[in-house]
Nucleic acid binder design. Structure first.
Lengths: 163, 163
DNA sequence: TTTATATAGTTGTCTAAACAACTATATGTC
DNA sequence: GACATATAGTTGTTTAGACAACTATATAAA
């Protein structure tokens, strides 16, 4: 575990930086060239609404791995662009249901095509087997860093309960 | 190539989002818990200066995959924190050489330890073989998306030359 | 030597992430 | 029903990324 820390350190820069920002920038550039005036962050929200319309902001937080203020502001900007509407839930008035507009529906096909193109470009020369392993590693990384959070929070709770 | 687009679409969210932000957030949290008041972005700049002190801002751009304005502002903030000094190069007065301060040198050991810990946590249960493949995939993604940029820019140049 | 061009860095503007503090509504308990 | 607590969302602040426009210095070409 300790004799390959340098190798792992190298991986750190890959995971945190290069590949993900390269894809993001490329997709953003492709959107721009196609005169699509949305950011990839906004697109990532629309992406989940295309899969299922009418999600709450809280559900969008979970789907996109963002915190609540981030989603509030993304929805703000999507509303300004008239791509999305906030509708207060009748059952629970705390909840905003987010619905796509017609304009947003029209964006789906074009942007998904660009996203697929970008991904195919990015993964050219990578075999499906390699992709599967990379997915597993990245998923494991995510799980490793998500699960322990609970135990940390439990620790804090226990500390609080002692009082 | 087209019959596994959904799988690739899944990978997209892994690459762009979950794993990298999870590691970044965890490392930031670990810094905070250790009362280290730097951001991981600032740390990533220091990381390269620890490997070699006295890099120019341009060299930091290349090392950290950021653009020039981003480095200007990161160096601004690192200077405010007294972790770094700008020194105008005598050979070429356009160039700022960036040097670590004593305070920054003291940060190295502690932060590198936290980074290694975080990475070990993140990669728990992942074999070295899997890590190697993931590295290859991410490197390939980066290369795929970096190299074609040149040809796009050539295309633009050719267009300009036509005038 | 003047002029064009390339390079290093800065500034302005917009968008977004992280975090803390906040409001409003809902739920559970006495 | 009153009170504590949990949940959904908002606002303020700081830091950062992307992009365009800019200044200053260096280099190449005429």
């Amino acid at each position: 575990m300790s004799n390959n820390q340098f190798k792992r350190g190298e991986l750190y820069s890959f995971i945190t930086g290069k590949a993900s920002t390269a894809i993001a920038r490329r997709l953003q550039k492709n959107f721009k060239q196609a005169n699509l005036d949305i950011t990839i962050e906004q697109w990532s929200v629309l992406y989940h609404l295309w899969k299922q319309d009418g999600l709450s902001q809280q559900q969008l937080c979970e789907a996109t791995f963002r915190d609540k203020p981030s989603i509030t502001r993304l929805v703000d900007n999507l509303e300004k662009l008239q791509l999305v509407k906030r509708v207060a839930s009748k059952d629970d008035r705390r909840i905003n249901m987010i619905y796509l507009t017609k304009e947003a529906a029209q964006l789906q096909e074009q942007t998904m095509e660009l996203a697929n193109q970008t991904l195919n470009e990015a993964l050219e020369g990578v075999t499906n087997g390699q992709i599967e392993i990379a997915k597993e590693v990245l998923q494991k990384v995510y799980d490793n860093l998500s699960a322990p959070l609970a135990s940390i929070e439990n620790g804090e709770q226990q500390r609080q309960l002692k009082r």
